[in-house]
Design a protein around this nucleic acid. Structure first.
Lengths: 111, 111
DNA sequence: TTCGCCTTGGCATATTTTGTCCAAAGTTAA
DNA sequence: TTAACTTTGGACAAAATATGCCAAGGCGAA
């Protein structure tokens, strides 16, 4: 079965991703953190996936680096889910089941 | 596109599912809770998806009702994920991204 | 009515997450 | 090397969440 193409940034974590953005813009943590109105060390930890981001932070990042907000959100949440399933035997099966449920809900809601 | 067959229990919540199991066996909360070594009210809440289950409880349920443990786990965790994505615009996209990540990890690990 | 079963709400406790500060460590340039 | 700047990790209290437990109330069947 053919494998879908993957962009270079598809398999990096959310933290790695936003650190890359910051690096590309040559901005220190200090500046970005100030813009986001959070502590420098908090941002550092978010970049190292040691703290959660939140809506406010995702908003800020998307604004600062002109990244589509929903793309960022997808990255963030898929990261979180991936992490949750890290040690599960049946990660893929679990995701498939969740998918089916969500599709089902969408069908039901749209009625 | 053809729709996959769905068993009747595929789109009920974890809570609804274990309540069904209990109902089919005609067991009161009291008995099952005792067997699981938790409070009756806790089990009631789990059945109503107002409290989390945990490994111990999943173990117990699978033992009591002779349900495959990994099936139960899939139900429980997919439920949880579905709930997390409840209010997200891009639920399916998020799941797809998570899937890709997990597949990628499996490929990398297996090297 | 009583009885058994289930649900609910309320705690107090425990656990997790968050925000913050600061000192130490790392980096870069002169 | 020093000096300036950046990043990191630990500690801490406060806030938010989760858990275990109990008492009161609701409901249906006998």
């Amino acid at each position: 079965m053919p494998r879908r193409n993957m962009s270079k940034t598809d398999n990096i974590t959310f933290g790695e991703y936003i650190r890359t953005l910051r690096g590309n813009s040559n901005l220190p943590l200090r500046k970005v953190a100030a813009e986001l109105d959070i502590d420098t060390s908090t941002l550092s930890k978010i970049e190292k996936n040691e703290r959660n981001a939140n809506e406010q932070i995702i908003d800020g990042i998307s604004r600062i680096f002109h990244i589509d907000k929903s793309e960022l959100k997808v990255r963030y949440l898929s990261d979180k889910i991936t992490y949750q399933l890290q040690d599960e035997e049946n990660g893929l099966e679990i995701l498939k089941a969740a998918e089916a449920r969500i599709k089902y809900q969408q069908r039901v809601i749209s009625k």
